[in-house]
């Protein structure tokens, strides 16, 4: 299992968080933490997502990027960390 941190910028629509969570789960990434600032009245929502998976993070980044409302996805710690637990 590898841990990754994603920094996501999105059009600030109500449903965007739901879409990201759905894609992460469906593509085989366990969500271990989330910090989101959405529906703030600005146009941009920011979401920090901590995920865990056997799968390479590029798979998730590419799929999240395909969501229409997404502006940017960055992997914060691009060198994956081994999960201790």
């Amino acid at each position: 299992m590898n841990n990754y941190q994603l920094m996501i910028k999105a059009d600030d629509k109500q449903v965007v968080l739901e879409r990201i969570l759905q894609v992460a789960r469906y593509r085989g990434f366990l969500i271990s933490g989330i910090h989101a600032q959405v529906n703030t009245g600005t146009n941009i929502g920011t979401i920090e997502l901590l995920v865990r998976s056997e799968r390479p993070i590029e798979l998730l980044v590419d799929q999240i990027n395909k969501l229409i409302d997404i502006k940017e996805v960055k992997v914060d710690n691009s060198a994956p960390q081994q999960c201790i637990a």
Partner: peptide, 8 residues
């Protein structure tokens, strides 16, 4: 056309 298909 779909980046997500590459290396999937």
């Amino acid at each position: 056309i779909d980046t997500a298909e590459i290396n999937k």
